[in-house]
Amino acid sequence: MEESLLIIYCSEGGRKALQKMSSEGFRLPSGVCTFELPCTGRINDVMLMETLQNGVRGIFVAGCREENCKYLDGNKRALRRIKRIKKLLSDAGIEGKHIEMQTFGPDEGKRLYSAINDFAGKVGVS
């Protein structure tokens, strides 16, 4: 799908924020798919590259707030990794804006909603 966007969220904070979002009545843009991982710490270069190569326009990662990772520092490692990948991408001439990670507390449904929409706007998925 040319027009698609992938949200990878963790089973803790990301999931809770997503559920809060839907319970508040906010809906995802239709081109957005979701994928759950136990912890964002599993995300690595290979995974993101594979996904981007498959034609996904953007990947948005929603993890737990820093200092609140069930696995101590999975989210911080993921943030660092994604920062590095973004840099690698821009060095290779691809814009780093296609990947983004943010962290959320369990009640931040509205913030998640606007973050996803901003991101969708940035990568051009309506």
Partner: peptide
Amino acid sequence: YGCKASDSCVHCGVCLIR
């Protein structure tokens, strides 16, 4: 109660209720 995280989690404990 609601999440009170600033830049990072401030350990308010509301997560634990959820």
